[in-house]
Design a protein around this nucleic acid. Structure first.
Lengths: 203, 203
DNA sequence: CCTTGTTTGGCACTCAGTGTCAATGATGGC
DNA sequence: GCCATCATTGACACTGAGTGCCAAACAAGG
């Protein structure tokens, strides 16, 4: 049976697993920057991390997933942040502040890497597609969270649209931020993006 | 050299090509309904249309494309409709009416097939992903059209958000319409969807 | 030390997607 | 009617993603 042996709440095996995952993701980013996404095979990705091809697919479901995995982490962060915010806050504010909380800490960590990642996600068609897919799935989850905040157990259209527009603002802000090479203030960019998004259909 | 031999503006070769395309798409829809998307191989798709596997890929770039191709047609329709509308019309109205013009005629044509197509596009993960991808690409194009309508030659964030929100409304309306088995009035559904979308960030 | 459960690598396989080439079949000029 | 030309097709071979399966290596606890 699994046994807790460490304080951080993770077993040794789990931390080892995370180590391999990180190594795989890092190696992927490196190779990607050097030779491009489609020109890099899974074999190379696995070899660069000192692991077999078969093992690669035990950590990531697809080649795109190595890159997109960090987006998944951010997604989950956004979801729980929104959940944690006061229920009487308007959806736009809740989403904006949730995104702010997650990304500001995350992007400042390693700006170069974040910028590179966003760039690839925009420019490589396969990655852009996967990103769109992830945002689409996240929209559903986010709509559900918004519904629950409002006391509903199933989302109404407005929940869907609020979630969707919030994520449009999020993606737009990320893109703009990457376009400034990460020099702009993330929080400020997000404020502007959400402000603009709110005006999208206003005459 | 290519010669025009018919009035409709299409050469014989082009119409033959369209015929094969349609046959392929029809066969795909049939097989899809019977055995599901992932359980159907390209070999089967090609065989069902009486064509070789290699030829299939000369008509569609991927397995998903057979299904998504009709979305591409609608996309192009929406783009040119928006372009054709008066430039002083607010973006929300222009997009709404453009979508209305394209879908109402298109969906009424073959309601059963349209509903089935939307359902598959929602339920099959691979198709849903491709749909999200297409909407994402369409958003860029639509933003550019909106920008040009307003006298800009490159989109500002608000163009992006207006395009994005409009497509959210479009997708939401399609989904709702399919959920009513195509019994609801498409134009009415679209009006409601765009109205709701406009309220997404309103307190 | 032994047992039990997990991780790993190797192998084989299916299937999507692409390049190449030779055969076929229109189409247009003569 | 005949020939040169260009597009379409099918066959073959190949790469690369993703999966199932099994046996070896490796922890961990009793």
């Amino acid at each position: 049976m699994r046994r807790r042996t460490e304080q951080p709440g993770l077993t040794l095996a789990e931390r080892k697993r995370q180590l391999v995952r990180d190594e795989l993701a890092d190696a992927a980013l490196r190779l990607l920057a050097k030779q491009g996404f489609e020109a890099t095979t899974v074999d190379e990705l696995a070899a660069a991390a000192g692991v077999s091809r078969r093992t690669f697919f035990r950590y990531f479901a697809s080649k795109e997933d190595v890159v997109i995995s960090s987006v998944v982490v951010v997604s989950e962060g956004i979801l729980s942040e929104v959940q944690a915010r006061p229920a009487d806050e308007p959806p736009a504010v809740a989403i904006r502040e949730a995104v702010k909380a997650v990304t500001v800490e995350d992007f400042a960590q390693d700006r170069e890497k974040s910028v590179a990642l966003i760039r690839h996600t925009q420019r490589v068609p396969a990655l852009r597609a996967r990103f769109a897919e992830r945002l689409d799935l996240l929209r559903d989850d986010l709509a559900l969270v918004l519904a629950r905040r409002a006391g509903r157990d199933t989302p109404v259209p407005r929940d869907q649209f609020a979630a969707g527009l919030g994520l449009l603002a999020f993606a737009g802000a990320m893109q703009y931020w990457a376009d400034t090479d990460g020099r702009a203030d993330p929080a400020g960019v997000l404020d502007v993006a959400f402000e603009e998004a709110g005006q999208a259909f206003v005459v």
